[in-house]
Amino acid sequence: MANVLVVAEARGGALKKVAFEATTAARTIADASGGQVHAVLVGAPGIAAEASKLGATGADVVHVCEHPALEQFDAEVLAATVAAAAGATAARAIVVGGTAMGQDIAPRVAAKLGVGVAADATEVTMDGDAIVIRHPMATGKVIATLAASGPVAVITVRPGALAVGTEARAGTVQSLAPALDPAASRVKVTKLTTGGGGKLDLAEAPVVVSGGRGLKAPENFKLVEELADAFGNAAVGATRAVTDDGWRPHSDQIGQTGRQVAPNLYVAVGISGAIQHVAGMRNSKTIVAINKDKDAPIFKVADYGIVGDVFEIVPKFTEMVKAARAQR
């Protein structure tokens, strides 16, 4: 009987998709030894309403920690609370979504427990008693297999990489007190500014439309935004050249030093396909490239390419995507 703890990330009062992906990974680990999945759900009062969704994706117990100060992310409170919950549930593994939040707290929890982190898993399996993860490293050019041993394994899972399970469990709600008074926390989030209304998160969007220098000027990014809007479920990304020039925020950068995404569909508009960019999107299921240079390296990774002027092709593509979606 080995229990698994999952940290279910919520933002703005709602669970993030990665919380369900992490819960599913936790289920895989727990099932190998007949253990239970315990989820930790932290947020402002009212967050308990989200608990049943965790039950629906495989959590046996949901430990809900509500506190007015936890409207904002608080790494110190969260890390302390998760470490305490790991002890209380005799967890042999802790699974955390590898978001900005998860990357922040997972190493702290691990250090509190005196173990390492198996980070950024794109696959989580069991090999007998050992938890085995696959992790793309060196900008995705090498895939490492890591085994986590020790009394407790701390794992982060790459957002969007793992499937969400449908095996429902009880999801029994228990209340959990913060293990640290939020007033004592030293690092304070003084302000959270969210991106444009309803804009999809790159890590969660099933479609990503990215633009590069081929768009020639920042105002032409509206072509990319319009195409993303036409898909209805797309986030907008960019190359480093474009974010370095201030056309787009650094948070939109896809690549070696930016975000790594693996959507169902990746559309590269006016992107040459430098290796640093490809490192961030090569695991996308289907890749479309539109570029004027037929020899651009992006066509080597693209499933479908169109050679030509993005200013002619993209508006037509937008129009036809809209029409195709309207027909469904």
Binding site: V115, G116, V117, A118, V132, P136, G140, K141, V142, I143, A144, T145, L146, A147, A148, S149, G150, A153, R282, I287, F299, K300, V301, A302, D303, Y304, G305
Partner: peptide
Amino acid sequence: GVTITKMELPAERAAGR
């Protein structure tokens, strides 16, 4: 506590068109 048991090169993407 965490050990690398294997490293491999990723599968090449099939050539597109």
